[in-house]
């Protein structure tokens, strides 16, 4: 993957290379945003992603490439999401309004929208641990080993959480998947 490129960019950014810092953000921001959108909340994801990068840049001097920079960054994003949820739990606020800037840049094909929304809702309804494992491995495309590194748990834990998330989704999306399956079987 681009893990090597991302890590190189992080190391160059650490030594003060601004162009490398920009490249590091460009290469990782979609994954960071998606993780935060699913772990925290969609409306705040952009702000939380910004907070993630600020924290990452703040501690970049101590980054020694022991784990790939992307894994390291996603672990920080995970902490940012947890802190956000803790803050929100302490003082409840009105639900955030959807910002235009937070809307997807690419247009979805109309047929996918219903399925996409149903799936998104089902994923966001998963218990935190399973949602985390599922989002990391399925929506961000991380391997089990990488996801385990981000979460800081054994690979076997990721394995079982992903399986349980799948089981929940199979149940939750029962009708949709049948429709989906029918659609797939059409030539």
């Amino acid at each position: 993957m681009d893990d090597a490129v991302i890590t190189d960019a992080a190391l160059a950014a650490r030594d003060g290379d601004r162009a490398a810092a920009a490249r590091f953000v460009e290469l990782t921001q979609q994954q960071v945003w998606r993780l935060l959108a699913h772990l925290a909340d969609r409306g705040a994801a952009a702000d939380l992603a910004q907070e993630t990068y600020e924290r990452a840049f703040g501690s970049l001097r101590r980054y020694r490439a022991e784990s790939p920079a992307r894994t390291w960054l996603l672990a920080i994003a995970r902490h940012v999401a947890a802190d956000h949820l803790r803050r929100r739990a302490r003082r409840p606020v009105a639900p955030a309004l959807l910002d235009d800037a937070d809307e997807p840049l690419g247009a979805a094909r109309p047929g996918d929208v219903a399925e996409g929304i149903a799936l998104r809702l089902a994923v966001d309804a998963l218990p935190t641990d399973r949602r985390e494992a599922f989002v990391l491995t399925q929506l961000l495309g991380l391997g089990y080993a990488e996801a385990a590194q981000v979460v800081g748990c054994p690979i076997g834990t990721i394995r079982s959480r992903v399986a349980r998330a799948r089981a929940d989704l199979v149940e939750g999306l029962g009708s949709t998947t049948t429709a989906g399956e029918a659609a797939v079987r059409e030539p």
Binding site: Q29, W33, R34, A37, A46, A49, L105, G116, L119
Partner: peptide
């Protein structure tokens, strides 16, 4: 599923 895209934060 269509990939959701976040804003550009650079």
């Amino acid at each position: 599923a269509p990939a959701e895209a976040g804003p550009d934060l650079v």
